[in-house]
Every structure is written in structure tokens, then in C-alpha cells.
Design a protein around this nucleic acid. Structure first.
Length: 652
RNA sequence: GCUGCUGUAGCUCAGUGGUAGAGCGUUCCCUUGGUAAGGGAGAGGUCGGGAGUUCAAUUCUCCCCAGCAGCACCA
């Protein structure tokens, strides 16, 4: 007999070898009916796995998220994979995991498939589900597992097995078919329990995530408990797509991109208003946090980048220009002779900041020195990486470098995390994903320095009360880093803020300070950005506010809209008054109905419309229509203006 | 960079082996209307670029460019 403990603390005795299904059945028929798998001693197992030891059991049903995930997993591994093999027998299966809201399967097709095939596959999947086969499994040795898949020429499965160091492998089968799949499970006991699903898209993906490997075809899908949940999810995706910053940027006339400057933003007046407000805000924050703003060259001799190490390490992502006068004679080459000297357009500000640090002599008493720059950087990003404002080739960071002593690292890091938190709160971002990237394989510096650096950042995060995850091997070659990620409208994660410790660059560029002992010492350098690139951060803001910016950021804070032409003089007077008071105001005295004007400005997401007609002109009032509201609010002019100005104050 | 898809008017998109259409916007006219689209008329396109097949290409083929999705990359 074995002793089974239930989540509520109850204990029961069962025969050795009993299954989760039988245990569920011994509790209630309805439970065994809804059970899809079990969790036994913290590990998920199939419903029909025999239990041979004492343990704690939890019955997983589709109600739990764990059950939903098992369903998604079964759907991709058993149904999508089988449907593909039925339709394309020569296709080779690679891996098919679950992801947030769904699943994918990576498959090598003999011939490329397209979205039409997606429909065929989905149809075949539904056909297979109709039969509602039971799923069974067998456990085989490594040799047998390899043989099984060799017979089917499933080379990727063989690769997976060969790389694994387990002695036993689980092979899932479906009754009445010869379909098999290698999987660590668990799976649903039967296809009858699959809920509602939809295949979404096709994309390429490298085998084992390595770009030197061949590219497979990845089929993405989403799956839910029932049609209602599925529909809700699809609606949510549609809603999220409406918040896409590229779409809103066009609709709200904020910026554009064009072929001749791919990856670089043309900021329109309205977009640049937001940009300037954000920059002004962060500039005030930095000034009051002990930073000194600087401006450094855009073009610097390539030799400096060699000295800093960037040339060797990141040269491929840099733009260079020969230091010669171009030849403008038509039909002749632009460069008559090959240039001996090259200038590089800066991809980062750090080497330049070191140059400023190195001017004169710095005492230990001067540290920390915090140099900030809204530095415009160019990075030669791969074409496929470019993405609206989120990934650009020309960007401006709220960049700063802190030169400090080793004993100041933790205090500076805590100081930074505090500042970052204040900024993110002000700008409406609460949902941060913070990652601490630790020493990579290829790295500079000693183990002791790395220990100190990693612990410095770790304790700073703890002191700042920020939850974080650690990523082994993801740090920069010069030091560990903290990354602050935010998700965009459709759930893609982008790094915005960052804090990086650097022991290497001061060494390479020979930065020193004079210590208490009168000797030269190396400062530590902290690379840090709160917003990251202003372009990306504004992109995130457009999506998180869905274009409905708070007043202090709204490109147009107020439109004065007239009802009849007779109110025009009054509206003009009002407009001048507000303009003089510094309000970002527009005047709409077009010969259009007020309905039309209200709609148009609402669609453009103008936060306030001051509606004026004959009555308002007579009484010297305005009828305020606020974005999203249905009602109007009648106020005397001066009250309305001072109220608007009051509400337009930046958070700092 | 890789895989797949897309590229037609300012925007969103339809369409065809015989050089093109809608809605919105824009211009002009009428309308002065009280809180999410008043009516009418007009202008506007080398159908992403290049080459090929064809009597004829926006349509078919190839190459290039760009965009989108994902992957890889992201100092």
C-alpha cells in the first residue's frame, strides 16, 4: 500500500500501482471525468501513470491553467503534428512547445508551405479531433527510441534523443494510428478533451535557435477551453493591434518612416512635441539627481573605436565614412582614391564620455561623476530587426555614465533604481520585467571583479525592492547588467532601461583618478539609461496610452471649435489668450457642423474640445467636451484656462 | 541576415493579360448647423523599381528594394 496526501491535507491509502485516474474516481465520478493529468510530488504526470510511492497528489482539470497548458501541449504534439504528417508525409517534426496563450510546432517541410496550407492543416486537425482517439504511451530505452524514429526518418527527434542524457523516453501514441511522438508529457488521456483552437500564422525559425542551423517552418496557434474564450482572445488581439504605435503614429500625424532613411524617424510637429516633453521631463529628473549634461561628437576617428574595443566587437553594427571630400563630377566615382582615414558615426556615447572624464585630473573626492547626454546614436541594425519606433538605426538615448569608485557601486545602483522607479511610475509603466544578466562565457576582468559586480547589482535590486530574474551568461563582455523590459500592445517585450557595470572601458581608454593614497586608480563605469532610446520609449507610451496621452504630453491639448460663424471673433480671442498662456491649442472655425468637429477631434484623441457658440460668446464661457466623456461642462473662460493649465503640469 | 507573406490615389483597401475603382481625406459650391460623419461637384495613380515572356504586362516569370510576422541579432 502507498499513502497519498491530498491538497486539503486528507490522507488515504491505495494499492501500489494505482493511477491518478483511479484515485480521482475514488473521490467522485465528476472529478475523474474532468481530470486531465495529475501533479504528483510536485511533478506533472499522466492520468494513467502508475504510482508506486507515497506522495502528495493534485488532480489537474481543465479549470486550472496547468490543465489548459497540457491541453495546448497535446494539441500541438498530437493533433497538429499528426495532421501535418498526414498531409505532408515527408515533413520532419522538430519541437512543439506551448507558449503564452497557445503553442507552436517547428517542422521541416520538403516544399515551403503558405497560409493556404494553414487552412488545410487546420481542417485536417478538426477531422482528427472528430474521431476523439485515446492517447497512450510507452516508455522505451534510448536505443529503442532512436530506432523508432530512425524508421520514420525523424532526424530532429533523433537529434533530441541523442543530446538528452536520460535512460528512458516517453513515446505517446494514439489508438488506431501509427502516429508516435516523443514527449516528456503529460498529455490529455483523449483527444475528446481538446477545446477550441485556431492556427494563427507561419514563420521561420532556426533549428535549436541557432542561425547557423537550417530554418524550419514554425506554425503558431492559440487554444482555449471553449469557443467563447477563444473568441475573447481573438478580439483582444484585434483590440491590441489598434494600439500599434505605427498605426497611431500615422493616424495622429506623429512621425513617419520612408525608404530613403530606413530605420530613422521623421518626427512630425505633433510627435516631436511629445518627444520634447519627455526629454524635458527626464532632463529635469537627471539634473536633480546629480547628473551633468554634456554633448559629444557625432563623428569620431575610427582609431578611437579601435581603442575602446567597439571596433573589434561591434564594428559590424557601425556606420563609417571616409574622411575625404567626395567627387561630385557626374559619371566619375564618388571617391577618387581610397581613404586612409575613416570616421565612425557613434553607436554609443561611452568612449566620448570617457574623453571628458579624462580632461584634467580627477580626485577621489570628485567621484561619483555623472555625465548625461541625449546622445544621438546610429547602429547598423539588421534589416529584419527594424520595427517602427521600437527598433531603429538612429536613436537618442537618455544616456549617462557614472564614474565611481568600487565602494560606490552599490549606492549608485540603488540611487539609479530609485530614480528609474519614480520615472516609470510617472510615465505610467508599472508592469516591469527586470532581468539581471550575469557573466557570459567570453568576458574580461577577473572572477573577483565579476563576483563583486554581480553582487553589487543584485543587492541594489534587492535594496530598491525590485523583483527580478537572473539570466546566466547573458551579461556584456565588460560586465553584468540589469535590463528593464516593458511589453508592447501585443505582448512583445522590449528592453528600455538598463544599468551596466563596466570595468573594462576605463582600462582600455586609460581613465584614472587620484586616490586618497596619491596614486592613480581606475574608476568603475556605470552605463545607464532610464528610458533607453527615446524613440522606443515613446513607442511604448503611444501603445500603453493607446494614443490618449495625459495632458502634459498631448500634442494638442485643446481645440476650440465653433458652432456658428458668429462665434468666430470670440473663438479667435480665446485662442490668442490660450496660446499666450502657453497652451497647445488649435482653432477650428471651419464651416462644419459641431458633430463633425467633435467626432474628428475625438478620433484624433484631442483631450479637450472647447465648444463655443453664440451663447458662450454672449456669456464669456466655454462648453468643455473631454475625450471619452459624453457630457459637457460649462465654465467661465478664465476658470477653464487656468484649470487646463493646472492639469497640464508635468509630473515632475 | 533567414523563412513566409505583402506592395494599386494622401489614408484604408477592391480589381483586371487590352495602361484602373470604392470609402475616407483634399479642392470648390450650397448649407450657420448645440456635442462622434449635412448635401453636391471636381481634382488626384509610370498600379514599389528593373529586366523578360507577349501584338499588348498593373496582372505572368525572374532579379532588386521596402514593409509586415516570426526567427537570429540587439554593444
Amino acid at each position: 500500500m502507498i499513502t497519498i496526501t491530498f491538497p486539503d491535507g486528507n490522507v488515504r491509502e491505495y494499492m501500489r500501482g494505482i493511477t491518478g485516474f483511479e484515485i480521482a474516481d475514488s473521490i467522485s465520478k465528476s472529478l475523474s471525468k474532468s481530470a486531465v493529468a495529475i501533479e504528483f510530488n510536485g511533478q506533472q504526470k499522466d492520468l494513467y501513470d502508475p504510482l508506486n510511492e507515497n506522495g502528495t497528489i493534485g488532480i489537474i482539470t481543465m479549470k486550472e491553467d496547468a490543465g489548459l497548458e497540457i491541453m495546448r501541449h497535446t494539441l500541438t504534439a498530437q493533433v497538429l503534428a499528426r495532421a501535418v504528417k498526414n498531409l505532408y508525409p515527408t515533413a520532419k517534426l522538430a519541437i512543439g512547445p506551448t507558449i503564452e496563450n497557445g503553442f507552436y510546432y517547428d517542422i521541416a517541410f520538403e516544399k515551403a508551405i503558405s497560409s493556404d496550407d494553414l487552412e488545410r492543416i487546420e481542417k485536417e486537425m478538426r477531422r482528427l479531433l472528430g474521431a476523439g482517439n485515446n492517447i497512450t504511451k510507452k516508455i522505451v530505452s534510448k536505443m529503442d527510441a532512436i530506432e523508432l524514429f530512425q524508421n520514420r526518418e525523424e532526424t530532429y527527434k533523433i537529434d533530441i534523443i541523442e543530446r538528452a542524457d536520460s535512460a528512458e523516453y516517453q513515446i505517446y501514441c494514439q489508438e488506431d494510428t501509427d502516429f508516435i511522438d516523443l514527449c516528456r508529457g503529460p498529455h490529455l488521456p483523449s483527444l475528446k478533451k481538446i477545446g477550441a483552437f485556431k492556427l494563427l500564422k507561419l514563420a521561420g525559425a532556426y533549428w535549436r535557435g541557432d542561425s547557423s542551423n537550417e530554418m524550419l517552418t514554425r506554425i503558431y496557434g492559440t487554444a482555449w477551453r471553449d469557443e467563447k474564450e477563444l473568441k475573447a482572445h481573438l478580439t483582444q488581439i484585434e483590440e491590441a493591434e489598434k494600439r500599434d504605435h505605427r498605426k497611431l503614429g500615422k493616424e495622429m500625424d506623429l512621425f513617419h518612416l520612408q525608404d530613403e532613411a530606413q530605420g530613422s524617424i521623421f518626427w512630425h510637429p505633433k510627435g516631436f512635441t511629445i518627444y520634447n516633453e519627455v526629454e524635458g521631463y527626464i532632463r529635469r529628473r537627471l539634473r536633480d539627481s546629480g547628473y551633468n549634461e554634456v554633448k559629444t561628437p557625432q563623428l569620431m576617428d575610427q582609431k578611437l573605436w579601435e581603442a575602446s574595443g567597439h571596433w573589434e566587437k561591434f564594428g559590424e553594427n557601425m556606420f563609417v565614412t571616409p574622411d575625404v571630400v567626395p567627387n561630385t563630377t557626374e559619371g566619375e566615382p564618388i571617391f577618387k582614391e581610397e581613404s586612409q582615414n575613416f570616421m565612425a558615426i557613434k553607436p554609443m556615447n561611452c568612449p566620448a564620455h570617457v574623453q571628458i572624464f579624462k580632461q584634467g585630473v580627477t580626485s577621489y573626492k570628485d567621484l561619483p561623476i555623472r555625465l548625461a547626454e541625449f546622445g544621438c546614436c546610429h547602429r547598423n541594425e539588421p534589416h529584419g530587426a527594424l520595427h517602427g519606433l521600437m527598433r531603429v538605426r538612429q536613436m537618442t538615448q537618455d544616456d549617462a555614465h557614472i564614474f565611481c569608485r568600487e565602494d560606490q557601486i552599490t549606492a549608485e545602483s540603488v540611487h539609479f533604481c530609485d530614480l528609474l522607479q519614480k520615472v516609470y511610475t510617472d510615465l505610467g509603466f508599472q508592469d516591469l520585467n527586470i532581468r539581471l544578466a550575469l557573466r557570459p562565457e567570453k568576458r574580461g576582468g577577473t572572477e573577483t571583479t565579476w563576483d563583486k559586480a554581480e553582487e553589487g547589482l543584485r543587492s541594489a535590486l534587492k535594496q530598491a525592492g525590485l523583483p527580478f530574474e537572473e539570466d546566466e551568461g547573458e551579461g556584456a563582455f565588460y560586465g553584468p547588467k540589469i535590463e528593464f523590459h516593458i511589453k508592447d500592445a501585443i505582448g512583445r517585450s522590449w528592453q528600455c532601461g538598463t544599468l551596466q557595470l563596466d570595468f573594462i572601458l576605463p582600462e582600455r581608454l586609460d581613465a584614472t583618478y587620484i586616490g586618497e593614497d596619491g596614486e592613480k586608480h581606475r574608476p568603475v563605469m556605470l552605463h545607464r539609461a532610464i528610458l533607453g532610446s527615446l524613440e522606443r520609449f515613446i513607442g511604448m507610451m503611444i501603445e500603453s496610452y493607446a494614443g490618449k496621452f495625459p495632458l502634459w504630453l498631448a500634442p494638442t491639448q485643446c481645440v476650440i471649435a465653433t458652432i456658428t460663424g458668429s462665434a468666430d471673433p470670440y473663438a479667435q480671442e480665446l485662442y490668442q489668450k490660450m496660446w499666450d498662456a502657453g497652451v497647445r491649442v488649435e482653432l477650428d472655425i471651419r464651416n462644419e457642423k459641431i458633430n463633425y468637429k467633435v467626432r474628428e477631434h475625438s478620433v484624433k484623441k484631442v483631450p479637450n474640445i472647447f465648444v463655443v457658440g453664440a451663447r458662450e460668446a454672449e456669456e464669456r464661457t466655454v462648453a468643455i467636451r473631454r475625450l471619452g466623456g459624453k457630457d459637457q461642462d460649462i465654465m467661465p473662460v478664465d476658470d477653464a484656462i487656468s484649470d487646463l493649465i493646472q492639469k497640464s503640469r508635468p509630473p515632475y
